[in-house]
Structure formats: structure tokens, C-alpha cells
Nucleic acid binder design. Structure first.
Lengths: 170, 170
DNA sequence: TTGGAATGTCAACAAGGCTGACTTAAAGTG
DNA sequence: CACTTTAAGTCAGCCTTGTTGACATTCCAA
């Protein structure tokens, strides 16, 4: 990327000279890329009258089986009423199982059933396929950079979220 | 990024060995990063009873002043009814101006008023600030890679969109 | 035993997508 | 000129997914 200028300073510190135009392009790229990134799962979800909210819930349950509702709320950053509506349909439809906690019986531990795992697999398959294609086209160095910037943005977001959690709990 | 393995093949062709886990991390990173990326403008928009839809419209009008409604529809990928609802309030509130086309009087050309430019500036400022911070933290090489992967994903999306346009028009 | 935390539920509402039907005006075409 | 197509706007109604607020239940812990 020739239009990202950088200057190496004495001690390894790096200054980036980024014009507003370059940043604007990055912003637009995020918009279009995110849209492409959700397009494939959206098609599958539409078939079965589910939405992105269902996908997100299943994704994070798959990723952390046995997680509690509160945990999921914190990760997803929505209200419990919003999440509950989604979880209820998933449980009714037999995609998610909610087990009462052994240690703390108020808590519900969430798991994907076999059916749920099947759908989650289908959804993440198409998403991974698309991401793999983009990775392959861009090359390994670009992928490393992509992940680094995204993880930096993600960390910032996670920190903001944790801060919000702490403030919320007093 | 040590966990992205690559193997250089004879003619400069590169194979990426990406595990499902690595791709999953990329997917999650997109989710969290996108959320972080929209968080700041959302706060400002909330103050004035606007939403992301208004932001997107203003962004692309600012980026291509004089664009037509149909153009904007194609870029945003929403229905004209959806866009119209947003445009109507922006025009009523004096942020967007709609001028009848000189060449083709059916068309309306869209511009941001001074007030509109002011708000758009405020919104993109906070977004650029966040992006600049992430860029700076990740370093110039990472930024180049980030943009390359995103542009690849974006191109894919834009091609899909153009294809849809062509098919839609017969 | 009482306070607070975790969960779930009901109701109402808003933003922002969608479809379908329809109008108006302008442009293109036979 | 008559007809069709196109650009834009509008109305009505629907869906998903977010929000608040109020409230019940259950259970842990002081």
C-alpha cells in the first residue's frame, strides 16, 4: 500500500502520516467489508426465519459452551430482554439447551444441541469460506496486518465494554 | 502474527494454511471491531435523534456531492422507501439539499448544506480519530495489510452488488 | 430473615430494514 | 403523437432487533 506513508524515528518509534482521505477510505472499507462478511450467513438465516441476533448467540455459545446468560449479555452488549427473545426461540426450536447451574442454581448454562451445532457449523462455514478467500487473495503478510489492526480495534472496544460493565455495577 | 503459517511455492504463489480456529478469531475480530468502529458516531447521532442510516447517507453524499437518489440506493443497498424516510428528515432538517437535475429533470441531485457538512464532519472526525489511534498502535505495515484484506473483501462485495444490479436490470 | 443478584417475562415503543401498490413527471421510442 | 419506461416520492403494513420499565421467582449470603 504505497499511499500509507511512514517515517521511522530514532528508537523504533513510528509516526504515521495519514490523510483524512486515507482514513475515509478505511472507514468505507469497513462498511463494505462488514456487509459482505454478513451477507452469506444472512441468506441461510433468512431460510429459517432467524436473524443475525440468533447467529451471534449461537456463535458465542458454540465458542464457550456452558456460558451463562449474563456472560453472553456482556459479550453481545445487548439487554437481557433482547437476548432472551432470541434465546427463547432457539430453545423452543431445540437448537440451544439451557441447564440450571449446579453450583448456583439461578444461573443457566447454555449449550448448543446437535441440531444447533449443525446450523452453527453451516453458518460459520460460509463465513469462513469467504474470509479464507479474502485471506488467500491478499496474502499472508496482509493477513497478519489485518488481524493486528482489527485486534487493536477490538481490544479498544473490549476495554470500553469492561469499563461500562464496571461503571454499571458501581 | 506467528500463528498465520504460510509456505512459499515455486513461482511466487503462496498457500495459506489457516485453521478454522484462526478464521473464527478473524470473524469475531470483525464483529467487535465493527461495533467499536460505530460506537462513537452513534453517541453523537443519539443526541439529535438520528441513526446510523442518516450517517451513512450523509457520508456518501459528502463523498460524492450531487449524486442522485438512485446512485445512493445502489451504494447503500437498501430500498428507496428506506432511504427516502431518512432523506426526507435530513432535507426537512436542512442538512441535505435536493436539486432537480438540469440534464434530466427526473433526477434529484443531493448535496449537504453547511449545517449538514458540519454534522458530517463531527461524525467522521470521531470515527477517524478512533481509526487513527488503531492505525498508530498497529504500525504502518499492519495498516497496509489491513487495508489490503479489507479492500479484497470490499471488492468481492462490490462485485456481488454490481452483479445484482445487472441482474436486476435484466 | 432480609437484601440483592440472576433470571425470566410482559408490555410498549423506536429505528430501520422489507414488500406492494400507487402517483407524478420526465424522458425515450415506436 | 401515443405509449412505455424510468426516477422519485408516498402510503400502508410487516418484521427484526434494539430499547425502557415494571414485576415475579429463585436462590445465595450476610
Amino acid at each position: 500500500m504505497a499511499d500509507v506513508h511512514s517515517a521511522q524515528i530514532q528508537g523504533g518509534e513510528t509516526l504515521l502520516f495519514l490523510t483524512d482521505e486515507q482514513l475515509r477510505q478505511g472507514i468505507e472499507a469497513m462498511f463494505f467489508a462488514y456487509r459482505g462478511f454478513t451477507a452469506d450467513p444472512d441468506l441461510i438465516l433468512q431460510e429459517m426465519a432467524y436473524g443475525r441476533a440468533h447467529h451471534r448467540a449461537m456463535h458465542f455459545i458454540q465458542c464457550a459452551p456452558g456460558t451463562t446468560v449474563n456472560n453472553l449479555l456482556a459479550i453481545l452488549g445487548v439487554t437481557k430482554q433482547s437476548l432472551n427473545r432470541v434465546l427463547r426461540t432457539l430453545i423452543e426450536d431445540g437448537l440451544v439447551e439451557s441447564r440450571v447451574g449446579r453450583l448456583d442454581k439461578r444461573e443457566r448454562h447454555l449449550f448448543l444441541t446437535e441440531t444447533g451445532q449443525g446450523l452453527e457449523q453451516r453458518l460459520s462455514d460460509v463465513q469462513r469460506t469467504r474470509m479464507r478467500a479474502a485471506y488467500r487473495q491478499a496474502g499472508p503478510e496482509a493477513v497478519a496486518g489485518f488481524r493486528k489492526v482489527l485486534e487493536t480495534m477490538m481490544d479498544t472496544e473490549m476495554r470500553r465494554q469492561c469499563k461500562a460493565l464496571r461503571e454499571g455495577r458501581g
